[in-house]
């Protein structure tokens, strides 16, 4: 069961969002329920503390002029309280500190109120869909994660997105090449290899996610990825890697 929580200080809007979401859940027969729709972030947090849901989806406003707490503080508190929580901010354009929110609480989406009712409703439904999809993925444990930490903070991305990990030009730094992402951080390839045995060490400086290889260049002994990146393969491993990749490409 995925629990939905709404927090919005305008009672009319709150009612409207709640209606849209409830109706949409019913139509799609999702295993979801709207647990709480409240104008007060304090009340929301109290409810979460008293009766923490295992999986939750939040629609939060950002500014609560009447309250002491802001939407950001609420979101950070929620992140601390719950293991699985997807956050969607519903807010007016001007009050949005997009980057701060993006970096501090990694919301699933922002819904901008200025867009007009129909657009908002559409976005609400999309996010219900998307939240539910993430929830089912999470339950089915299909979403394997690749995690790393920088300066005491943990980051993760779906393992299915990872193309390969390579040593950077300077020692003690590695780069992660993934679909739509590129990360460089201090670390050692060996530690990553130990942590993720599913990544294949094709060469001294490359750890490859064989599932994402899109082609093979036998002449130069290189693997090709969907974004055009290439990695070297050590001579003595090439045969083995080639069989693996061909098996994977066929399937």
């Amino acid at each position: 069961m995925l629990a939905v929580y709404l927090c919005e200080d305008n009672p009319e809007q709150l009612q409207h969002y709640s209606d849209v979401i409830k109706r949409y859940i019913m139509i799609n027969d999702y295993d979801m329920v709207v647990n709480l729709a409240t104008p007060s972030p304090q009340e929301l947090l109290k409810a979460l503390e008293e009766n923490p849901p295992e999986y939750a989806l939040f629609f939060l406003d950002i500014e609560f002029p009447a309250e002491k707490m802001s939407g950001l503080e609420t979101a950070i508190a929620i992140r601390k309280l719950l293991g699985f929580a997807e956050l969607v901010f519903v807010t007016t354009h001007s009050e949005m500190a997009l980057l701060t929110f993006e970096r501090k609480v990694e919301p699933m989406d922002f819904i901008v109120k200025d867009l007009g009712r129909t657009q908002i409703d559409q976005k609400l439904r999309e996010n219900v869909d998307y939240g539910y999809q993430r929830y089912t993925n999470y339950l089915g444990n299909t979403e394997n994660l690749f995690s790393y930490s920088i300066g005491g903070r943990n980051f993760s991305l779906p393992m299915g997105d990872v193309y390969f990990v390579a040593t950077a030009e300077t020692p003690h730094k590695v780069t992660v090449h993934a679909a739509n992402q590129l990360v460089e951080f201090p670390g050692f390839l060996k530690d990553i290899a130990d942590q993720y045995p599913e990544l294949y060490r094709t060469d001294k400086s490359f750890l490859v996610n064989i599932d994402n290889v899109s082609g093979i260049d036998s002449e130069n002994r290189r693997l090709i990825f969907p974004n055009g990146d290439e990695t070297d393969v050590a001579t003595r491993r090439f045969h083995e890697v080639k069989t693996l990749v061909q098996k994977h490409l066929k399937s």
């Binding site: 990360v183 951080f185 201090p186």
Partner: peptide
């Protein structure tokens, strides 16, 4: 690359391009 305490994340997300430089505080 040459700054020991620096990391870089580049990501495409929801039609936005994000560059993030993370600098770890010294002595950590």
């Amino acid at each position: 690359d040459r700054t020991e305490n620096a990391a870089l994340q580049v990501a495409l997300k929801r039609g936005m391009l994000y560059f993030t430089v993370i600098l770890t505080k010294p002595g950590r």
